[in-house]
Design a protein around this nucleic acid. Structure first.
Lengths: 242, 242
DNA sequence: CGTACGGTTGAGCTCACTCAATAAGGGTGG
DNA sequence: CCACCCTTATTGAGTGAGCTCAACCGTACG
């Protein structure tokens, strides 16, 4: 009941002055005007929907995720597991040879500002400052990955689910009180390394405890952020760090 | 019985022509002679022992781990958890502001070829090719981190221990049949996200099954690599990928 | 109206955790 | 050399979170 769609509509951001207006992002900081022009000429907006793979002409796409979400999945025979989730503001980085079996695919309506991996590599070579910025992003990504998975490796099911909900709520639009889980229980479980049934039980438990409101299986509202934060298990760290 | 020490003696590698002989490593590939000289002038060998923090004048050290091992630990109040293990050939990368609470410390005798973070950043700015090489390394590191933790998040205790033993055996010297676990049961458990007792049980189970030989708590020999590989749980992936 | 897919819920089982006792070294001082 | 202490490792018994298996609900869609 109370089905919502507005959030997905929002993704239809008009890419107005598309060619010369670089999004505000640390990737583009400290570039000269000439460099900005060079970058603008190469990058453009791409739109994906459903579970479309994030590719341009068969090659991986590199760039900034402007809206929507991207799931990183790996196929092991018939088994698919979701190994990462990128949200608006995150960057799809260049992949090396080792990630040949990891695919990025759109979750819902998704908008990406970027270009093919090859083009991006050319740009990096041409613009040292861009390379510096990019390096900083990759380093940040590395740290985020470490945090994410390090914690996942030792968190309980409850903590994992709370962590995901909080992460999603942080990435949601400012005014948006209702957030979209984006993924099915099965894929959430996959992402968090727990089973579908466990995800369901945890989410229902939060709803029953009044921590979140559950409008539909994937539309929720965070009612008690403090309780949720507590449930992530991250608190005692800050507490004991005093 | 049959206590061993040779492995730790090996770490005393003489840093012969220290200044002009850059180690063979992809970090230094495709550098001009002038650039190589520049790098050689800045980098040097550092030796650590015991649980010494990897620092130069209080600043983080960046460089290549030539021998020994480095544990990455994070302190949460009184609780210390090991979140990563670097072995010979791995690189200590530049850390961003987000990793302020992650410390790198030597495990046993450890030799690192590198320089302070600040110096390294200067070098990166001066030598675009070095920056490219470094970027490739960081990207590889990112992927390795994803692999490591993604798998850890969903592996059983047996699989985790098998994975660690195999990783260590791959990094061991060519002829070395006896490998050193380097860490106590407690720290291994910490690293793998399982309890000390569980680590002990798994290792003993492998020994009882004849998969490994156990000379002392930390000195082992892999007897049946295939069985160990099977135990990592990684096999079914390759199998089902057929 | 039936089918399909995703979600929910229950019952029983297993693996890893906790708690606790016992070895096994490895130094150190006498 | 021996007695002692301290750290690390081992092993057992009991508990519980999350898994498996299985039934059932609800909505969408042909």
């Amino acid at each position: 009941m109370n089905a919502l769609t507005p959030l997905s509509d929002v993704t239809a951001v008009p890419h107005a002055g598309l060619c010369f207006a670089l999004p505000e992002h640390s990737l583009f900081s400290n570039l000269s005007l000439a460099e900005q022009a060079l970058v603008s000429a190469r990058l453009s907006y791409f739109h994906f929907d459903g579970d479309a793979p994030i590719l341009v002409d068969g090659a991986p796409l590199v760039g900034l995720l402007r809206s929507g979400a991207v799931a990183r999945t790996t196929r092991l025979g018939s088994h698919v597991s979701t190994v990462g989730l990128l949200l608006a503001g995150d960057m799809l980085i260049l992949e090396g040879p080792r990630t040949a079996n990891v695919r990025s695919e759109a979750v819902g309506k998704t908008e990406i500002f970027g270009c093919s991996a090859q083009s991006f590599q050319d740009l990096l070579r041409q613009i040292p400052q861009l390379q510096l910025n990019y390096l900083a992003l990759v380093t940040a990504e590395l740290q985020a990955t470490r945090d994410w998975y390090t914690l996942l490796g030792r968190k309980t099911a409850t903590e994992r689910v709370a962590t995901l909900i909080l992460k999603l709520s942080r990435h949601a639009e400012e005014g948006a009180t209702v957030i979209d889980l984006l993924l099915t229980r099965d894929r959430i479980g996959n992402l968090l390394g727990i089973k579908m049934e466990t995800v369901s039980r945890q989410i229902r438990a939060f709803a029953k405890a009044g921590v979140i409101a559950l409008f539909s299986p994937t539309k929720i509202q965070v009612l008690d952020k403090a309780a949720l934060l507590e449930a992530t298990g991250d608190i005692w760290r800050e507490k004991s760090a005093l």
